[in-house]
């Protein structure tokens, strides 16, 4: 079969295929709806924190909610720097991975269900390129989602408080380029984590034609990982869990940035990415047109 397809027309450049895929992704109403909803979250957070009195309610490190970012939220109200990161931290727990899983589910399983993947499989495009296009599509979507949150978060904080509150958790005040650099770093890091989730979703997606199966398994996996992560008896397992790396995003707000956890988390995401993509590739190669 390869002999027949390969020499025929391998002229379609990946960039054109990706552009077509992106047009396809961003034309879906649900993509836009998800992005819109994600964009609203930081606005709600910012307004809610500005309306509620942020002092008083936040004794340090106490109460049941403290472990879930209470301290971060307490500082979030005021700062252009902190609100985007806080919004990313909150949504990275559940919503952003869900969005990444949705992108992964639509990319293969969704298209199998509607019959459009058949066109891809029959077209003179090698399966590796097909996967590359799909993976880049997922990556772009997650990047847009993370950027959306960061931008609306920053704008919300800017409107509510102005730009003179760029201070870190260590109490130092940052310059505007430095703060923007940190937000960009956070967005890039979150995108990498989400891409890893998306890659695993793609792998599952290649095996099924029901997008719901992909969503359910990724969501279930995240919940299981979170539960495993909260069990102290399994602390030997924690370095392997992707979700355990996600708290490191807060390190962006410390000064100087402790990079060990961020780098470790990025490497961990890369490992998941390799696993996910190679399984997806293996399934895709052996899939019949």
């Amino acid at each position: 079969m390869e002999v027949m397809t390969e020499p025929a027309r391998r002229t379609a450049p990946v960039s054109r295929l990706v552009r077509a895929e992106l047009r396809w992704i961003f034309r879906r109403p649900r993509t836009l709806a998800v992005l819109g909803l994600l964009g609203v979250i930081p606005v709600i957070m910012g307004i809610a924190l500005a309306v509620a009195d942020p002092t008083g309610s936040s004794s340090p490190g106490e109460g049941p909610g403290a472990g879930e970012g209470g301290g971060l939220l307490a500082t979030a109200a005021g700062s252009v720097l902190v609100l985007p990161i806080a919004a990313l931290t909150m949504t990275l727990r559940m919503l952003l991975p869900l969005a990444a899983a949705m992108a992964g589910a639509d990319a293969l399983a969704g298209e199998t269900a509607t019959g459009t993947l058949r066109g891809w499989l029959l077209a003179p495009v090698s399966r590796g390129r097909l996967l590359l296009v799909k993976a880049l599509g997922v990556a772009t979507f997650t990047l847009v989602a993370a950027t959306m949150i960061a931008v609306t978060g920053a704008v919300t904080a800017l409107v509510l408080n102005g730009a003179d509150t760029l201070y870190t958790l260590s109490g130092t005040t940052l310059s505007i380029p430095d703060a923007l650099g940190r937000i960009a770093l956070a967005v890039g890091w979150v995108t990498l984590q989400l891409w890893a989730v998306g890659a695993v979703a793609l792998a599952i997606s290649a095996f099924t034609e029901h997008p719901m199966v992909v969503l359910a398994s990724v969501l279930g996996g995240i919940i299981v990982f979170t539960v495993l992560g909260s069990l102290d008896a399994l602390s030997w397992l924690h370095p392997v869990l992707l979700t355990e790396a996600w708290w490191a995003i807060v390190d962006v707000l410390r000064d100087p940035i402790p990079d060990a956890d961020l780098i470790g988390g990025a490497l961990k995401a890369a490992c998941y990415l390799v696993i996910g993509l190679s399984i997806a590739y293996a399934r895709l190669v052996s899939k019949d047109g």
């Binding site: 370095p239 490992c271 990415l273 696993i275 190679s278 293996a282 190669v285």
Partner: peptide, 24 residues
């Protein structure tokens, strides 16, 4: 293609798992 698929799946998963193991 089946063998290729199996090779890629095993190699990729092994590389990823090894990486995770090293990190842990």
């Amino acid at each position: 293609t089946k063998r290729k698929a199996a090779t890629v799946a095993v190699a990729g998963t092994a590389a990823g798992a090894l990486g995770l193991g090293l990190l842990a």
